[in-house]
């Protein structure tokens, strides 16, 4: 128990709540207007038959949700999106974990700081442009094909552009830094002496990895996977640019409802089903995510 004797400055009081409200009020009011109310409005829209503006005939209905559960098309889409999310998260782990390990455990001091920054910076830079830059690498007779042709004379065409793998490559590139970041943080907290201890007890490198490092780094791995999976299942720009006609996912269909088809209620219902998936994932992994933060 923290005894009052050791409390640095007693801070509680009725005027505190008022000061706090004045300081926080504007920020939270902003979030209510721009996030909470829009989500509520979208929930409402998802039960309408048409956009509720003058001149349109609209009534409340479940038909938007019924459409999803009755039409094979939407369920396939949802499945494709979930699979894409899982695949991208998996690849990010496979590529990113060793990278985080090398960074956290074998490189020291200023070099580590610099390399870490180098990994993280692209993540915060413009996502659209990074996706766009892949078109130059992947397209037919692009950099990748020319390089392979130079390496292996007579190498045929890959035709990667506008395929499912192209979408995966672009998304892995986009979100890889996230996985490296979360794994790096959890690997950093593992005491090196634990590994030495396991080795002194006769464990091989592989056993140490399996029994000590991976379990201890698990919160970081899961956090990375969740934080990648969630935005990927809601992606639409990446599949559009790199996937072309192969790039039809739940995200692109939702975008269509809002920008092309103008069927907002259906778009809202699909958005909400997507949000439901997101919330379920966060709820399931909440305990591990909390440990990771």
């Amino acid at each position: 128990m923290a005894l009052p004797d050791t409390v640095s400055v007693p801070r509680r009081g009725p005027s505190d709540a008022r000061s706090a409200a004045w300081l926080m009020g504007p920020a939270y009011l902003w979030l209510i207007i721009t996030v909470l109310l829009p989500l509520a409005a979208m929930f409402y829209f998802s039960f309408l038959s048409d956009v509720p503006i003058a001149g349109r005939n609209w009534y409340t209905t479940f038909s938007n949700y019924e459409a999803f559960f009755q039409q094979e098309f939407y369920r396939t889409l949802m499945w494709r999106s979930l699979r894409l999310g899982a695949e991208v998260a998996l690849w990010c782990f496979v590529i990113g974990f060793p990278c985080a390990y090398v960074l956290a455990k074998t490189i020291k001091g200023r070099w580590r700081e610099a390399l870490f920054l180098l990994v993280i910076i692209p993540f915060w830079s413009n996502a659209l442009i990074r996706i766009f830059s892949w078109t130059m690498v992947l397209r037919g007779n692009g950099i990748l094909e020319r390089f392979l042709a130079w390496l292996i004379p007579g190498f045929g065409s890959l035709d990667l552009m506008f395929t499912y793998p192209a979408v995966v490559i672009g998304l892995v590139h986009s979100y890889l830094p996230y996985m490296i970041l979360t794994c790096y943080i959890s690997l950093q907290t593992i005491d090196d002496s634990l590994v030495d201890a396991a080795r002194s007890l006769g464990a091989s490198r592989l056993t140490v990895l399996r029994k000590v490092i991976l379990p201890l780094a698990m919160p970081g791995i899961v956090a990375g996977a969740v934080l990648i999976f969630v935005p990927v299942i809601g992606s639409f720009m990446e599949p559009r640019i790199l996937g072309g006609r192969e790039g039809t996912f739940l995200g692109t269909v939702i975008e269509d409802q809002f920008t092309a088809v103008f069927n907002w209620p259906l778009g809202a219902a699909l958005s909400f089903l997507l949000l439901a998936c997101v919330l379920i994932i966060f709820a399931v992994f909440q305990p591990i995510l909390r440990r990771a933060s």
Binding site: M42, G234, L274, V278
Partner: peptide, 20 residues
């Protein structure tokens, strides 16, 4: 605002700002 896919927040904003 960070965790929900921007597609969802974006479309919700579009709909709410347009409607309100």
């Amino acid at each position: 605002p960070i965790a929900i896919p921007w597609l969802i927040t974006g479309t919700a904003m579009l709909l709410f700002f347009f409607w309100s």
